[in-house]
Design a protein around this nucleic acid. Structure first.
Lengths: 106, 106
DNA sequence: AGATTATGACACCATTTGGTACCATATCAT
DNA sequence: ATGATATGGTACCAAATGGTGTCATAATCT
């Protein structure tokens, strides 16, 4: 009945290469219907649709019906969670880079 | 025989919450042996070890044997790939935030 | 030496993942 | 009205994932 409206982890959503490709395509195209998106992949429509569903569950994608087609759009907001997570570790690799630089300067 | 030396995607490696917890623990502790790490989790040693193997395959973790224990250390470098990936989309949510800000200012 | 500890290496298992094919339904074109 | 197109939904499947338990081995302690 209802969509079950599952909540998906953004880290899981971006783990798959096909889904990252989807994100990129949508970022560059603003809004696209499923059949056009499918044309850019090797896999079938059902598989693409499933990936889009997962992205939607992570709220990385929004969609609306226009006539018989469903158009998808990127919603990059949730990527900020990834950025925030990364921020904690940034200092580590910056420190390491600095240390390495110092070593190389000898 | 040989380690099979599998190459793992960093996006896959960070997709699992337990592995993100591992990364955090190692970031805060510098170097830890497996049994001490395991003590911080609900799951068994074997499972923790498997997660560490995956992190190692993504080169997010290095390890060395000291006596009978294997000590693990974080190697944050590969996280830069994630940062670079994110950089492409950052503008989108910054633009959106700016648009939203403009709307709110009316 | 003998017991304990730390780990690696497997075999095993339930569930999830990523894909397919197929059927039903709604919309559009002629 | 008929046919083609676009999508949703379901059933199905092989492989991967995330766990477990068990056994073997190496290192440490008394």
């Amino acid at each position: 009945m209802s969509k079950t409206e599952q909540k998906r982890d953004v880290f899981f959503a971006i783990a798959d290469p096909s889904r990252r490709k989807l994100i990129r395509i949508l970022a560059d195209a603003d809004e696209l219907p499923l059949h056009e998106i499918t044309a850019k992949f090797e896999m079938g429509r059902t598989a693409v649709s499933k990936h889009l569903t997962i992205l939607k569950e992570a709220d990385l994608v929004r969609n609306r019906k226009i006539g018989r087609e469903t158009r998808y759009q990127l919603n990059p907001g949730p990527l900020e969670e990834v950025k925030d997570w990364l921020a904690y570790y940034e200092k580590f690799w910056i420190e390491r880079a600095a240390i390495l630089k110092n070593i190389l300067e000898d």
